[in-house]
C-alpha cells in the first residue's frame, strides 16, 4: 500500500463516511457510553483506512460495521474487569428525546415509550443487543448481520427472537403495572 496519499484517503472518505451514523449508533449501543463509543468509532475508522485495500467494493456499510463491531468488542474485552453496565448513563439517556414529533402530546408519549424501550434494550446481553440494533435500526438482513457479527444466520435469528421476547416481556409488564 502506498501509505495514505490524499487521493486514496478521499476515496476512503467517500466510501466509509456516509456510514458514520450507522457506525456510531452501533458502537454507542454496544459500549452504552458516549465518549467510549466515539473513541471506538474513531479507532475503527483508522483501522478501516489501514485495511481499505482489502475492500473490493460491495456492501460498504456492512464492511465498516464489521470493523466497528470488532473494535467495540475489543473495547469490551479491555473493560470487562470493571464489568460495569453504565446504568446511570443509561437512565440519563433514557430521559433524552431524539424524536422529531411535532404534536406535543404525541412527543410526550413517544418520549415515555422511547425511554422505556431504550432502557430495556440497554439491559439486553450484548450479543442480543447488537443483533437487535442492526436489525431494527439499520434494517439489515439476517445474512448481513451474520457477516458483521461473525455468527451463523440461525444464531442471528435466535438472538433476535430472544431479544424481542425480553422487550415484549418488559412492555407487557409495564402495561399491566400502569392503570
Amino acid at each position: 500500500m502506498p501509505p495514505g496519499d490524499g487521493a486514496r484517503t478521499r476515496r476512503f472518505e467517500a466510501v466509509a463516511l456516509p456510514h458514520l451514523a450507522a457506525a456510531y449508533n452501533l458502537a454507542r449501543w454496544i459500549c452504552r457510553n458516549e465518549a467510549d463509543a466515539a473513541d471506538v468509532v474513531q479507532e475503527a475508522v483508522m483501522r478501516a483506512l489501514q485495511y481499505f485495500d482489502s475492500y473490493h467494493g460491495g456492501d460498504a456499510r456492512a464492511w465498516l460495521l464489521q470493523i466497528v463491531r470488532n473494535s467495540a468488542h475489543t473495547w469490551i474485552g479491555k473493560n470487562r474487569l470493571a464489568g460495569r453496565v453504565d446504568l446511570e448513563q443509561l437512565e440519563s439517556d433514557s430521559a433524552t428525546v431524539f424524536s422529531g414529533a411535532q404534536d406535543p402530546l404525541a412527543a410526550v408519549i413517544a418520549q415515555a415509550e422511547g425511554a422505556r424501550l431504550r432502557l430495556a434494550i440497554g439491559r439486553l446481553p450484548v450479543e442480543q443487543r447488537e443483533v437487535l440494533v442492526l436489525r431494527e435500526f439499520e434494517a439489515l438482513s439476517y445474512r448481513q448481520i451474520a457477516g458483521i457479527t461473525g455468527c451463523p444466520i440461525g444464531t442471528v435469528m435466535s438472538r433476535l427472537s430472544r431479544a424481542r421476547d425480553q422487550l415484549a416481556e418488559i412492555v407487557r409488564g409495564e402495561q399491566r403495572a400502569s392503570p
Binding site: L20, Y24, N25, G114
Partner: peptide, 16 residues
Amino acid sequence: QLHAAALRYPVPGDLE
C-alpha cells in the same frame, strides 16, 4: 414501536 421510537443515537457534533 421500536422503529417509531427514534432510538438511534445521533453522531456527536465533533466526531466527524
